[in-house]
């Protein structure tokens, strides 16, 4: 299984653990991810203005160069996935904007590439059954709440990732690792995204609702594939909200994957959490007691 691979900016800075855990897991699972030679930031958010195609230039350039390497491009970060796949949709279906962007990047790219999320690779190419068989350290009984947020699911007609109202790919993934899946209604509600930059505590309201929805149903960890969701949900538990052991750590799905595959702790890269996942993972024997998480 070979794919070209787009890391994106956050995975090279604040979310290093997301990437290192993913790449190490991919190696063990026989999934070959070859990083694009010349990639640039996707823009982090898909532009919603139709009279300005300039924000599409950077993701389109990435797509065009990925097309030269093969037919499928893998991303880990939900935002990269969303922006690249939506840009690809424009390049495939909107001749007018495609011509504009191609003229600027001096390419003739027509959207004939498939943008896939790493979760889709695990589900469709490896298969969750095969994944379950590869598990070395079953996370038996770990009450894990999936959190999709928005970028993986919407717009559903363009992304075609999962049922936007009742997705289950993360649940199936967590089950394959041996977790006890905690279903909770806020798994598809927005965390607030970039509104987190607004001053004051107001903006963390939606994130607190998500965490509370998972915590109240017994979740001990929340699992996501978006660095901004991870940050928002984690930071929302700052201060009183996360005190007295009530905090629920928020981690990337690949970190849980690496643990289940029995990979060394140094690939996990837990850094800067408000609610540290260490105590939880040590308590279930998923991490050694000496770890610095």
């Amino acid at each position: 299984m070979g794919y070209s691979y787009f890391p994106g900016c956050t995975l090279r800075a604040k979310a290093r653990g997301f990437e290192s855990s993913a790449l190490a897991s991919a190696r063990v699972l026989g999934i070959h991810l070859e990083e694009l030679a010349n990639w640039q930031c996707c823009g982090a958010t898909f532009p919603l203005q139709v009279d300005n195609s300039f924000p599409l230039v950077s993701p389109a350039r990435t797509l065009a160069s990925a097309r030269r390497m093969g037919e499928r491009l893998v991303t880990l970060c939900s935002a990269c996935y969303n922006v690249l796949k939506r840009t690809n949709h424009v390049m495939r279906t909107d001749a007018d904007r495609r011509d504009k962007v191609n003229a600027f990047i001096e390419e003739d790219y027509r959207g004939d590439l498939e943008v896939v999320h790493f979760l889709e690779v695990l589900r469709d190419d490896l298969g969750f059954d095969a994944l379950a068989r590869s598990v070395k350290v079953p996370l038996s009984g770990l009450a894990a709440a999936p959190y999709y947020g928005c970028l993986l699911l919407r717009p559903a007609d363009e992304l075609a990732f999962d049922d936007p109202e009742a997705p289950h790919i993360l649940e199936d993934f967590l089950s394959a690792l041996g977790c006890r899946v905690v279903d909770h209604p806020y798994k598809i509600e927005c965390c607030g995204s970039y509104v987190a930059l607004e001053p004051g505590e107001l903006a963390s309201g939606p994130s607190r609702m998500v965490v509370e929805s998972a915590r109240a149903r017994g979740a001990r960890v929340i699992v996501t594939s978006c660095p901004l969701c991870q940050y928002n949900l984690d930071v929302s538990q700052q201060g009183a909200h996360g005190r007295n052991g009530a905090g629920v750590p928020v981690i990337y799905f690949t970190q849980l994957l690496a643990i289940a595959l029995g990979l060394p702790e140094d690939v996990l890269g837990f850094e800067g959490h408000v609610i540290s996942p260490g105590p939880l993972l040590r308590s279930i024997g998923a991490m050694g007691s000496e770890a610095t998480a």
């Binding site: 800075a13 604040k14 979310a15 958010t45 995204s193 970039y194």
Partner: peptide, 22 residues
């Protein structure tokens, strides 16, 4: 004027997206 802890801790994705929208 972004608070120091935001600049230090927020993922790049948040800053890029936020600056693009705001």
């Amino acid at each position: 004027r972004l608070p120091a802890d935001v600049l230090e801790n927020a993922p790049e994705q948040a800053l890029v997206a936020g600056l693009r929208k705001y």
